[in-house]
Design a protein around this nucleic acid. Sequence first.
DNA 1: AATTGTACCTGTCAGC
DNA 2: TGCTGACAGGTACAAT
Length: 274
Amino acid sequence: MPELPEVETVRRSLAPHLMGRKIEEVKVIMPKIIKYPESQRFVELLTGEVIQELKRRGKYLLFSLSSNYIWVTHLRMTGQYIYTKPQVPRDKHTHLIFILDNGYELRYVDIRKFGMMYLLRPEEFSVAKGLYTLGPEPLDKDFTLAQLKERLAGKKRKLKPLLLDQTFVAGIGNIYADEILFDAGLHPEREAMTLSPEEIERLFKSIQKILQLGIENRGTSIRNYVDGQGNMGGFQKLLKVYGKAGSSCPVCGQPIVRKAVGGRGTYFCANCQQ
DNA sequence: AATTGTACCTGTCAGC
DNA sequence: TGCTGACAGGTACAAT
């Protein structure tokens, strides 16, 4: 489900409620969500910890704790964190519950159970391989046009799979990849090394613009996504190509097409995107 | 080394 | 009404 703008929205919606909160109890209903350490150890270590800060890196949420441990979560397709009062009925896909010291609890809900959690010391970071190998953060100052140019050079790969590769750039998923490529006027099957300097600049600007717009609109809710308070996002109203096969391109009026590219459903305008 | 395919799960929707 | 298959905001790991 959640890509960079959704994870950032979850972070922002939870941070004010969780900062300084002590975790009084951890209830594990579905141990397989916990990847490391073993679930009993995870519970022992997390119980009594105080949440200091809530950070994001790519699509990962990072809770820094009062000890030097970091609680790492990836929501994958359908993971949600819900901050709520205990008396509110639980969704049947609630897999972990974190009881807080202020009468609230944080629930981890995940229909497809693809999500994962780790509790790591800084020197153990490589245990979460995907986090360890993450590429540059696209909205950070150190993500530059020159850097993108360099990373694209000599790459024969198609743009769509490249944007989805988290070691290339962190945080872009299937929705935003399609919206970025439409905004940049670039075909999802273009080989990366064939881009002109002017096209690379368009891609660079569209990556930042579309992700920023996604955050400003509190993410995209098509199926399951909600933030930490259970609120839907608004960016689904602004999508131009994703999920719009058969409707007309907002720029030229030609029909939007759907095609599998690198195994993922891909939407684009074959006229505007070359 | 770099791609591509497959597995992990549950739910929904279209077509018969 | 079922049933069946395709598809879904993702990535780890195996196989080429």
